[in-house]
Design a protein around this nucleic acid. Structure first.
Lengths: 137, 137
DNA sequence: CCGCATCCTGCACGATACTG
DNA sequence: CAGTATCGTGCAGGATGCGG
């Protein structure tokens, strides 16, 4: 897929772009899938903007999320090395979360998509209306 | 979220990054969600690499996809203005699909994520193994 | 050939209750 | 406070058959 960025008009070697490292393919799909789920994107944003936060604080910042999904999403991100989890051995427990460098860099990588969306918002909107109108009429 | 890209150390204005245009937010979420679904990414790749294709041809190129999902995904992309659909009024029907300029540009926007994945594949892999080992041990 | 309608299944997620 | 465990359910998506 990165082929899209660099197509020097076949002047170089006739690379087989169809054959992509399946591990990269899988990872990309995984990651996009995760960032796409309802909450991961918000978590990256919150942790980026406000730095280290404890569980309950994050929980209150995301209206509509269930405790289950927050735990689950954070675990997933921790597993992928995007988030660091610190447990303070006190009672009552105090657990804090922060983005790792890896997590920050992933956020940056997705900026391109944000920019695209801001830039082309109107076009997409128009396209949708045209399509829906045709369907109706 | 684009805030991640440009934080000149607060030397400029104290912008409220929390207040993002909800329309952009929604669109980004939509798009990421769509590209994340099992097939859209593959379709963008195929249509980019091989140009205009008719339905059956695409169908054969994606092992495992159902006819239903192919139709559905293409419709969705058409609605968003990413794909153009040409119906040749012959019998039997002949329908061809190609990426619009908008579709091509979206593909480019996602290249950043691909690059990230290629770059950090090992780190993620390691993180996952460490996490899973700890869980077991 | 293309695509819609119908039926069926599994899984993702919310709600709730319980522990260290 | 920060989780796990359990149950109920809605909906995404596969399989199949029909229609233009």
């Amino acid at each position: 897929m990165p082929a899209i960025a660099n197509q020097p008009d076949g002047l170089t070697s006739p690379k087989r772009y169809d054959e992509i490292d399946p591990r990269v393919e899988a990872l990309v799909h995984d990651l996009i899938g995760q960032v796409a789920d309802k909450w991961t994107m918000l978590l990256i944003e919150i942790l980026h903007d406000h730095g280290e936060q404890r569980f309950t604080r994050i929980f209150k910042k995301i209206p509509g999320i269930s405790q289950k999904m927050l735990t689950q999403t954070l675990r997933q991100m921790e597993r992928n090395g995007l988030v660091h989890r610190t447990v303070h051995p006190v009672v009552p427990p105090r657990v804090e979360y922060r983005l790792t460098d890896l997590g920050e860099s992933l956020g940056e990588a997705f900026c391109g998509v944000w920019t695209w969306a801001e830039t082309h918002l109107e076009k997409v909107d128009t396209a949708r209306r045209r399509f829906d109108d045709r369907a109706a009429g």
